[in-house]
Amino acid sequence: MNNEIIKVTQLPIIVEQLHEVKAEVTAKVEQALNLVCTEGTIKDVKKVRSELNKELKDYEDRRKAVKTAIMKPYNDFEEIYKDCISDTYKKADAELKNKIDSIENELKEKKRIEVLCYFAELCEANGLDFITFKNANINVSLSASMKSLKEQAKAFVDKIVDDLNLIDTQEHKDEILYEYKQSLNVSNAITTVTNRYKAIEKAKAREKECKAREQAEAEAAAKVESVVEAVAPPTVEPIAPPVEEEKTYTLKFIVRGTMPQLKALKVFLNNGGYDYE
Results as ranks from 00 to 15, higher is better:
A220Y: 07
F133H: 01
D162S: 14
E151I: 08
V236W: 05
V186K: 06
E209D: 10
S143F: 07
E106F: 06
C210E: 13
T191V: 09
E217K: 13
A120V: 00
I190M: 15
V236I: 12
Y197Q: 06
K159W: 00
K110Y: 10
L128M: 09
E124R: 03
A220V: 10
D174E: 10
E109W: 04
S143E: 15
S141G: 03
T169H: 02
A125P: 02
Q215D: 14
I167D: 09
E217S: 13
S141C: 06
E229C: 11
D168L: 10
A232L: 04
E201L: 13
E201R: 12
T191Q: 12
V224T: 10
S143R: 13
A221R: 04
A153G: 05
K154Q: 11
I176V: 07
D162T: 08
E219H: 11
E207P: 13
Y180W: 00
E214R: 05
L122Y: 01
K159H: 02
S141Q: 03
D158Y: 00
R196A: 10
T132S: 14
L177R: 03
K150G: 01
E219K: 10
K198Y: 03
K134D: 15
K223C: 06
A205F: 05
Q215N: 14
D129Y: 05
E229G: 14
E219V: 01
C117P: 00
I160N: 06
E217P: 03
I131W: 01
K202G: 12
S143I: 15
K154P: 03
S187Q: 10
A232F: 08
L149M: 12
T235K: 09
A230K: 13
V157R: 10
V193M: 12
A153E: 00
A230F: 11
Y178P: 07
L142P: 05
A212E: 14
P238E: 15
V231P: 15
D174S: 08
E179L: 03
E201S: 14
V236Q: 12
S143L: 15
E109D: 11
I113G: 00
C210T: 05
A155F: 02
V228I: 15
T191Y: 11
K154F: 13
K181L: 06
T169F: 05
A120F: 07
E209T: 06
E114T: 00
N135K: 01
E201K: 10
K173Q: 13
D174M: 06
Q152K: 12
V157N: 06
A144V: 04
T192I: 02
I138F: 02
V224P: 04
A232R: 14
P234M: 06
N188F: 05
I103V: 15
V186M: 11
A230Q: 12
H172E: 04
Y178S: 14
L164F: 08
A221H: 06
I113H: 01
